[in-house]
């Protein structure tokens, strides 16, 4: 079985430009075991990258971008928009213990 594991970084930006400022972030780490603690809500106050472009320069690959939101007065506001999913593949043998 392959030892490659996916790490996923979800970044929300303040505009549709990939160089705009990060306003929310989440990290899901496939190298961690079921008993390990993933990133928790409220655990950090500074984003790991200032933008998606900043993360790309560090080796992260964008694999999904949210569609541009439909804006209307009737719809109001809801979920955070400008959402980007990035991945990094790690060799789990070198990450034992997470």
């Amino acid at each position: 079985m392959t030892s490659a594991r996916q790490q996923v970084l979800v970044l929300h930006l303040n505009s549709g430009d990939l160089g705009s400022t990060t306003v929310a972030w989440a990290f899901y780490d496939g190298t961690l075991g079921a008993e390990d603690v993933q990133m928790q809500a409220g655990s950090e106050n500074e984003p790991p990258y200032s933008s998606v472009l900043d993360a790309m320069r560090d080796g992260w690959r964008v694999f999904q971008a949210s569609p541009l939101p439909e804006r209307s007065a009737a719809a109001g506001t809801g979920q955070l928009t400008n959402e980007y999913w990035l991945e990094r593949i790690q060799d789990n043998d070198s990450n034992e213990g997470g």
Partner: peptide
Amino acid sequence: TLVLPGSHMRSVLGNDISRYKNIVGQKR
């Protein structure tokens, strides 16, 4: 308790937002 000031103006369903972890402006 951690809160996100201003988020009461957003229409969301209860647990959909559990995808998010850290948000600029969050306040303990």
